[in-house]
């Protein structure tokens, strides 16, 4: 029997790991990976609450489906923004000086 708290510990550790990546890293791709890891942690917490909630409900699972679909959309947009950032500034590292202006 795996108690709910174990799942929550894994979820919180994933969220903390993603937050570490988002706070510390300067490469935009790594920041995006950190955001995705945080999203995975949130999904685990939601599904765990759905199962152990006392009364079974489909709402958290349905929410996770929507979250996954939106995660796909925002990743696509973030990557295209990253490409255009690289085009403008010549790198994908936050806080670095502008290397080149492509015209």
């Amino acid at each position: 029997m795996v108690p709910l708290s174990w799942y929550l510990v894994v979820a919180f550790m994933l969220i903390g790991l993603g937050a570490y990546g988002m706070i510390v890293k300067r490469n935009l791709i790594r920041i995006l990976i950190g955001a995705e890891i945080m999203g995975n942690g949130v999904n685990i917490a939601l599904v765990a609450f759905a199962v152990y909630g006392g009364v079974f409900s489909y709402t958290p699972q349905g929410l996770v489906i929507l979250v996954i679909a939106i995660a796909a959309a925002h990743t696509a947009l973030a990557l295209v923004l990253m490409l255009l950032y690289n085009r403008r500034y010549g790198h994908v590292d936050l806080g670095s000086p502008v290397q080149a202006e492509v015209k």
């Binding site: 489906i65 996954i68 679909a69 796909a72 959309a73 990743t75 696509a76 295209v80």
Partner: peptide, 12 residues
């Protein structure tokens, strides 16, 4: 991106 969109649509 088109592939991912089809992926999500297929899942639904």
């Amino acid at each position: 991106i088109l592939f991912v969109v089809i992926d999500v649509m297929g899942a639904f």
